[in-house]
Design a protein around this nucleic acid. Structure first.
Lengths: 213, 213
DNA sequence: GTATAATGTGACCAACAAGTCATATGACTG
DNA sequence: CAGTCATATGACTTGTTGGTCACATTATAC
């Protein structure tokens, strides 16, 4: 948790600091990230950083927390209506994700990278928490799907979660990489292309890759 | 590439150095890994490390190369017989993998972690190369599967690769985590448990998770 | 057995950057 | 306006560690 001083700052300034920190962590990784540079980019003195946070690690942790909360408040409502069908949920969550990447590229990639287990040295426990939370949401949907007969019952919930998450994560990674390569021009013609891919992926999750005789 | 001096060393000694390096990188990550400690654990002088390698990064890179080659020569023949069926290949490659984890835990995890994109700062390009190589192998099998009618043709090869890799990677991660938690006692009763899971995963890849009406 | 080359060694150096602190600023109080 | 408190600042301290190098040791050649 940051010190009181930071929390008393106007939100605008908090945001500037957070974005400066996230930018530096993204470019350099945790160890090589330079607190001085973060301060410079946020247009404050290095000493101020230590007025706000106990140390570099706390800064990192709070930056992640901040980014997650940012998305939750900014895009949260889009998920809130209760979609009960797992596949439908999947399809529907794709567009906001791409929109996030488009408008908040750095934040989105930062969160995703921590989630994927980079920054393991600093944030092993944070990753753990995030993973468990996603697992929980999916697990609920899978159970529901089994009940209403849309998901097969002969395979354990846990494996189904892994299966689903693995496949979707790989696609996410791909989208991120592409966004990284193409920069701002990615997705400017909308998401039609990825919609096709997403539909195909859902098809695969539903019906698998084996040919039907 | 290491300096000639290193390559002239008796293999036993090379191995000691490599294992010391990998151990330290695993425990501390790249930046925090201490060259002095590596030297101490390998029972050589710090100066010798620099007689062998240009710098810390080269040491890291070669350690990875060494580990990959170690597995290739140690377990390579098991993959060599040409399995043509993708799913069969999948099933067959599982056991050697688990055996590797059991006997060469640290090396296996090291390679896997680089592969998963940790150590991104140092090894972005290495990760790229490894990924592409695995993609290539899978791609070949998928094409073959499409030809011989075991894999559906209406979905692009690339997506099928992602799908397959994603799902399997998640399972691997899980196995690794479990091995980490249980230490040496994991798998001591054989792999029966995971065999069941693996079969279920293959089922999923083939037929998906949707209930058949 | 001596000369020469190759390798081993660890004290040392230089760079860097996290974190500190004495001081400056300025807002608020009465 | 004096006094107090919260905050801002950046020069400085301090510890760390990658990398070097002068010297020691061992192997090789002749």
């Amino acid at each position: 948790m940051p010190k009181e001083t930071f929390l008393r700052l106007p939100e605008q300034k908090q945001e500037t600091v957070m974005r400066a920190a996230i930018g530096e962590f993204m470019r350099c990784g945790f160890e090589k990230a330079n607190v001085g540079t973060i301060a410079k980019n946020a247009e404050i003195a290095k000493g101020s950083i230590y007025q706000y946070f106990e140390n570099k690690e706390e800064l990192f942790r709070y930056a992640l927390e901040w980014a997650v909360r940012f998305f939750a408040t900014e895009y949260g409502q889009q998920y809130s209506r209760s979609v009960t069908d797992l596949f439908e949920f999947f399809r529907e969550s794709a567009e906001p994700m791409m929109r996030q990447i488009q408008t908040e590229y750095e934040l989105a990639v930062f969160v995703q990278e921590v989630f994927l287990g980079h920054y393991n040295n600093v944030a092993r426990d944070l990753t753990e928490v995030m993973l468990r939370s996603v697992d929980g949401i999916m697990l609920g949907m899978i159970r529901q799907g089994k009940e209403n007969g849309s998901i097969r019952c002969d395979i354990s919930d846990e494996l189904l979660v892994k299966f689903m998450e693995g496949a979707s994560m790989r696609l996410k990674e791909d989208i991120l990489r592409r966004a990284k390569e193409e920069g701002n021009s990615a997705f400017q013609n909308g998401f039609a292309e990825y919609e096709t891919e997403m539909n195909a992926l859902i098809e695969l999750l539903k019906n698998g890759m084996g040919a039907k005789e």
